[in-house]
Measured scan of single mutants.
Amino acid sequence: HNGKLCKLKGIAPLQLGKCNITGWLLGNPECDSLLPARSWSYIVETPNSENGACYPGDLIDYEELREQLSSVSSLERFEIFPKESSWPNHTFNGVTVSCSHRGKSSFYRNLLWLTKKGDSYPKLTNSYVNNKGKEVLVLWGVHHPSSSDEQQSLYSNGNAYVSVASSNYNRRFTPEIAARPKVRDQHGRMNYYWTLLEPGDTIIFEATGNLIAPWYAFALSRGFESGIITSNASMHECNTKCQTPQGAINSNLPFQNIHPVTIGECPKYVRSTKLRMVTGLRNIPSIQYRGLFGAIAGFIEGGWTGMIDGWYGYHHQNEQGSGYAADQKSTQNAINGITNKVNSVIEKMNTQFTAVGKEFNNLEKRMENLNKKVDDGFLDIWTYNAELLVLLENERTLDFHDLNVKNLYEKVKSQLKNNAKEIGNGCFEFYHKCDNECMESVRNGTYDYPKYSEESKLNREKIDGVKLESMGVYQILAIYSTVASSLVLLVSLGAISFWMCSNGSLQCRICI
């Protein structure tokens, strides 16, 4: 991952900044910058967002509201009850120091605090018919004063009620008058409520006091790749198909172990950190130390980045220098085999997901714990399936590479015959000098055995068991695999060879 928040398929997220979902939807004055928000790819909250409900109280069923919003990608904020005409018999300019803005008392931008007009609070009834052709999110509140005197001074009615009804919602609220500790300079409380109004449905408000009335509502448009994440990451000019709280993932790998919460087309989250597919040879310690064997393909974004291909070729060293050249036929066979294998694994496992966190309130801790156990169970199954699949494929890959290298080895052996000696570690020792032209003939299969047989015969008789390297004779190393990324691999195959001279070296080696 890149540690950044990015656009998702070209669409920017909605960053709530210092506000949370509650503050944004109710219209906390400190969240005025969010009022123009219309569309987004996903919503970003920060872990310690401080601006929620400015007048103390709870947004009821907040967790369910977050779940609903996680599939919303755009909205239209509109005046559901026009301020100047909807409440002619009531005062609608209630403000509070708890919702101060720029040093002055204020109130929510989407709600109206209705109080008595003169000395009376006549029963009010108002309704709205949803003609938007889509779901409408309606929010309101109920004020709970701290004393009967406060109730009387604001609403005149000691036994007030609030009723809200639609086809799918029907509740009646009565204020709970009680002494409470002071929070944000208030002994009173406000509880906030919401409902989704279906197209064509009607919502009716009736009250004799204590109503925090809707002013603006939201017509919602769903987008199934949307979601809500909690993150401290910063926004950058970048684009992605998959976003996590820790950063964007741009990967076609089937798995990731970065974060379980994802938005967009994302690899499946697994616990494993070692889900690797081999593309090189079986481990040979001396070669492995030099980083030549054991190439791997990573299938977990965050564990290993991208696929690494092994390729086969020849390396030689003689009086004229040293050089490398790919054996294109065996390399292409290996590439085709690995590509098919990788595609097979991805096809089997690479279903892209959006995974969002589930919200539970403080009273639902047991449910949250149960949900976590269920999620953990599914996660263990996914991890096991992934590891088992790759384990089985790896064994076949190792066998496949062994065969490829063996074929190259036999190709060289059949040409050199007794003009060189096998020394048991995949290397041959020449009994004759071999210049670049000679080396090329070994690589392309045109090695002239009779041409060098007499010199080889004489050297075999002279050496008589002495280690060949100390006599200045020449080696050919018969097994060799270097490691390159897919891009470098293609470039390498396009070149005939490249040279690395070893000044004054008397050794001649050709490596497979």
Rank of each mutant, 00 (worst) to 15 (best):
M471E: 11
I423M: 14
L281Y: 05
G321H: 01
E395L: 06
G465D: 02
K406Q: 08
I308E: 07
Q328E: 07
N239L: 02
A248F: 02
S453F: 08
K241P: 10
T482K: 15
N318G: 03
N336P: 00
G445S: 09
I346P: 08
T305N: 07
D380A: 12
N257V: 15
A478W: 05
P267D: 01
K358N: 07
I258Q: 04
R460D: 09
A495T: 11
G494M: 15
H432Q: 09
V345N: 14
S492R: 11
N336L: 11
T331V: 06
T354K: 09
D435E: 08
Q352H: 12
G306A: 15
V356C: 12
S453Y: 14
N419A: 13
A326R: 06
N250T: 15
V483W: 06
I381T: 02
S470D: 14
R271Y: 08
W304Q: 02
L458E: 08
N444L: 12
L363P: 03
E347I: 10
M367D: 14
I476A: 09
K413W: 09
Y269S: 03
K462C: 00
N283W: 09
Y452V: 00
N318V: 12
L490D: 00
Y289C: 01
S441A: 14
S453N: 11
K457F: 12
N369A: 13
L458V: 14
N250F: 13
E469W: 14
M500H: 13
K348N: 05
T331N: 14
L403D: 07
S492L: 14
K348F: 02
N503K: 07
I284L: 15
N250C: 04
K413Y: 10
I423R: 07
M277F: 12
C511W: 11
N239R: 04
S492E: 00
G291T: 05
Y447R: 04
L487G: 08
G302A: 08
R290S: 00
R396C: 08
K433I: 15
N232I: 13
P245F: 05
L490F: 02
N444P: 00
A297S: 15
D327T: 03
L489W: 02
F428N: 08
L370R: 02
W311Q: 01
Q332L: 09
T262N: 09
P285V: 09
I512V: 14
E237R: 00
K329E: 13
F293E: 01
G504Y: 00
E455M: 09
E429P: 01
I300D: 08
T446Q: 15
T240C: 13
G377V: 05
